[in-house]
Simulated assay, not measured.
Amino acid sequence: MIILRHCESEFNRLYTLTGRDPGVADPCLSAQGREHARRLVHELAGEHITRILVSPFTRALETAAPIAKALGITPEITPLVRERGMYSCDEGSPASALCSAWPRLDFAGLDEIWWSDLPESDRHLQSRVQRFRSFMAAQPASGETLVVSHWWFLLGLCGDSLENGDWRHEHL
């Protein structure tokens, strides 16, 4: 599979400026993040991506959108790969709001309040990572899957810190 950390969000931009949690729940991408997401279309063009799994957070959805459009793929909402509940940005938007904002995506399997409690324990995060590993190991085309996720989840999955918009191949 290919793992991709979402591009820069407004939370990331403000946190970098101040070093403090800016109190922004479920932030959208910053202008720089939106441009980076558009560039990812070309960066990932040579990869044989046939499926996109995406976290329900807005920043992940906005990162996946231009890639999905270019490839003609409808992203699959995958709450298992959501961010660890630690900061204000880790409070999501209710499923009903996401359905309104993203009418072409299927949020039917998403609870209205789907994000993790703050703070989410290491044990709970690692449990999600292991469940995702098991899920992906059972997928026939896992090597053709793009997973758009978040820093803490991807750190647990691969053991490395990915910066905003970084991607790499990850083997199970």
Rank of each mutant, 00 (worst) to 15 (best):
G23T: 11
P56R: 11
G46E: 13
L157W: 03
L154H: 05
D21K: 11
S93T: 15
W102G: 08
P103I: 12
H150Q: 06
G46V: 02
L157S: 06
A60N: 10
T16P: 00
F135A: 06
E83N: 11
Q126N: 14
C99T: 15
R131S: 14
E163F: 12
T74C: 08
A31F: 04
E112H: 06
L53P: 02
G46M: 10
T18I: 10
W167S: 15
A101G: 15
E8S: 02
Q126R: 10
L4M: 10
G33Y: 06
E120S: 05
H42N: 13
L110D: 04
S161M: 12
I113N: 11
H150T: 06
N164H: 14
P22H: 01
G72F: 04
A64N: 07
H6Y: 13
L44K: 04
L4E: 09
L17V: 05
D21A: 11
L146Y: 10
S142G: 00
A137C: 12
T74I: 11
R131N: 12
S9P: 02
E112M: 03
D111V: 01
L157R: 01
G72N: 03
S9M: 04
T58Y: 05
I2G: 00
W102Y: 15
L40P: 07
G165D: 10
D26C: 03
L53Q: 09
A31G: 05
Y87N: 13
S55M: 07
Q139M: 13
S149K: 06
G143A: 14
S121A: 14
A70Q: 01
S96K: 08
D26W: 04
R39F: 07
E120G: 02
P103R: 12
R51P: 01
S134R: 11
A95P: 03
R104Y: 12
R123H: 13
G23R: 03
W152L: 03
M86P: 00
Y87R: 13
G156D: 02
W151Y: 11
N164Y: 07
L61S: 14
F132H: 04
C89H: 01
A137V: 04
W167N: 11
D160V: 15
V129T: 02
F11S: 00
L110G: 09
P119M: 11
A25I: 05
E83W: 04
P103L: 10
G143Y: 02
R82K: 15
I113T: 14
C28L: 02
P56V: 10
S134A: 12
S55K: 09
L146G: 08
R5H: 08
T18Y: 10
M136W: 10
V129P: 01
G72W: 03
R82P: 01
L105E: 08
E144F: 05
D166P: 02
R34V: 01
A141C: 11
E76M: 09
N164K: 02
R13M: 07
D122A: 14
R123N: 12
H171K: 14
R131Y: 05
E112W: 07
P75R: 09
L125Q: 08
H150F: 05
